[in-house]
Design a protein around this nucleic acid. Sequence first.
DNA 1: CTCCCATATTGCAATATTACGATAAATTTA
DNA 2: TAAATTTATCGTAATATTGCAATATGGGAG
Lengths: 109, 109
Amino acid sequence: MGATNTTHYSDLDNKLAAFCKALAHPARVAILKHVAKVGSCICNEIVDELPLAQPTISQHLRELKSLGLIKGSVEGVSICYCINKEVWDEYQTLFNNLFSDLKPAGNCC
Amino acid sequence: MGATNTTHYSDLDNKLAAFCKALAHPARVAILKHVAKVGSCICNEIVDELPLAQPTISQHLRELKSLGLIKGSVEGVSICYCINKEVWDEYQTLFNNLFSDLKPAGNCC
DNA sequence: CTCCCATATTGCAATATTACGATAAATTTA
DNA sequence: TAAATTTATCGTAATATTGCAATATGGGAG
């Protein structure tokens, strides 16, 4: 075990869970916020910004990139990362729907 | 390692990450939706609903409960679970703020 | 009190995640 | 070409997560 069996759940539930998994580490939340704050682009400023070694940052960036939450393009020696707006719009809709589904339930106990 | 070091991140980032961690499994997303759909209350209907054994469901419920996302109260022999609306309101605000922070960044690359 | 039912806890095995040092790959500069 | 810089990948250790069988716990029913 230790492996999540995704085959029995709806595509939507799996997608929401995968998105949340990508945000389920404070370093990745901080990376996203930093990328957004600096605005256009960055590179290994993140390594200076966060208390993690360069390979660890690279690993977190890969997870975010694999879900499409950020994009990276080669910019000379370094790499430019930025928020992938379209993908975020999609997940925001998913999340709004989740909140809509859950909130009307209200408090029974 | 394998342990996330939360001490170097902001309380907000840690809180968001902890919330996402709770939703980072499709079974827990499905449990929340089921609890909300059935509305008032449930018990081990979840065990019949999902392809997981009773101890596994109980474990997922504990994770959701420990973050305050659901409440449980004894109802005779069984236990009544429901959505904790106040807590969800709080996280919805957190999430809306996150989306607001990230989206204006737009696409640079 | 005893049995039964629903839920929780424990213990364990398999796998995933986190983190980093060492190193590779790619590109710019000298 | 060679050295320097930036990022990615590999290998590995420590810890966390997932899942279940077995068992414990806490109430109601008889």
